[in-house]
Design a protein around this nucleic acid. Structure first.
Lengths: 212, 212
DNA sequence: TCGCAAAAATGAACATCGTTCAAGCAAAAT
DNA sequence: ATTTTGCTTGAACGATGTTCATTTTTGCGA
């Protein structure tokens, strides 16, 4: 029974896992730049060349780690539970959920700083296409925002709403990014949280007003 | 007359310029990753080792390019002239100026994509301190936002206003960053402009409302 | 159980990087 | 003219990602 050329045998699968684990730990401990082939092989208990039997190159390995991080991020965002006061209007409820979502994003980035940073710091070599599963995962993240925009800006078209969701995500991402960037002068985490809350709340209010 | 150890002779100054020029052109043409020592030396018409007589390492050279980019950015932001209707309230005027500032930031990033990206993509090796002029320059950028916040949120304390300025900048930065990131799916520039306008305007309105 | 072809794993070798520094060179001083 | 001083140079070094001839293991028919 000839195995498919793409199929990953059990042995190879284990090696892939060990390598992804090792890379993940390296990133979390010493950042993306510390992911080197030789230490990786040692930590995974395999030969140098073995890496290239399961991954085409190190970029692919890092992408595998990114996939994991994105999955953890999504799980974390799905786990938030917002209790909304019964007498709250749908708009107020959506606003609160939006703020909670942004705070959850910030919390994840703070808790898994290095992995989260690696997600955006890592750049594919020029001309390499972004894997389709990554695009799909990003779309899922934007979607989480999009559904909350329904009650907030009911008069807006769906296409425009999709773009707005992307923009909102980007804005929060920027807040978190520069907030956790040590080189801009460290901002205490609690303050950063307040800022995210303030700005997301302000954006929601402003958007409601403009949609009226 | 013994020259100061820090002073840069005329010859060395020219070389420094030629190298910075070469690096700048390389970044604009093929991105930050294409800044390599040997091509650099060739383009600048000097020996390989000569680079290290005027810069401690390539990171310092890239920082010199960043300094230039920041200066150009500041000049570009200073050049914007907003005409505000005479009957506009101070709040409306400030809001319009804030939007104009954000759009100018977007325009600069779009026009000098690679240089602007290099500004944030480049990361100092662990433990290297950020030059003080860079921190100062960033403070100047935040300051431009801060002055516009005065009429918008008059009841807010100055310390909180400073943080808010930083947050606003970060949010716009995030919008521009993910907007120009090809890998998130290209967004037409005109739409991106509209999004920035919409979101900054919304933030301003929401902040006014919350400050009331 | 043995032999042997096919597959898989290995790590020495290679190309390319940033950086260093002994050697050469030019200018200044004597 | 000779010595001294300081600057310039590019070969050499260590580290890196990647390749591939060689070795080792595996699978299986005799």
């Amino acid at each position: 029974m000839p195995k498919s050329a793409v199929a990953t045998g059990a042995r190879r699968g284990e090696l892939k896992e060990r390598l992804t684990d090792a890379a993940s730990r390296l990133i979390e401990a010493k950042g993306l730049a510390s992911v080197k082939a030789r230490p990786l092989a040692e930590k995974a208990g395999c030969a140098l060349g073995a890496i290239y039997t399961v991954f085409p190159d190190l970029d692919a390995l890092i992408l595998a780690v990114s996939a994991r991080t994105l999955a953890r991020l999504e799980a974390h965002l799905d786990a938030i539970a917002v209790e909304v006061a019964a007498e709250a209007t749908p708009r107020e409820a959506a606003r609160q959920r939006l703020v909670a979502l942004a705070l959850a994003y910030l919390d994840f980035a703070f808790a898994h700083r290095a992995s989260w940073r690696a997600l955006f710091e890592h750049r594919l070599p020029e001309g390499r296409p972004v894997p389709e599963w990554m695009v799909a995962e990003q779309a899922r993240l934007f979607g989480k925002v999009e559904v909350l925009l329904g009650p907030l800006v009911p008069h807006m078209g769906v296409a425009q709403r999709a773009m707005l969701a992307r923009s909102l995500f980007s804005a929060v991402h920027g807040l978190v990014l520069l907030g956790l960037e040590e080189k801009l002068g460290v901002m205490p985490f609690a303050m950063l949280r307040e800022e995210v809350e303030r700005l997301v709340s302000a954006m929601a209010r402003g958007l409601e007003e403009m949609d009226r």
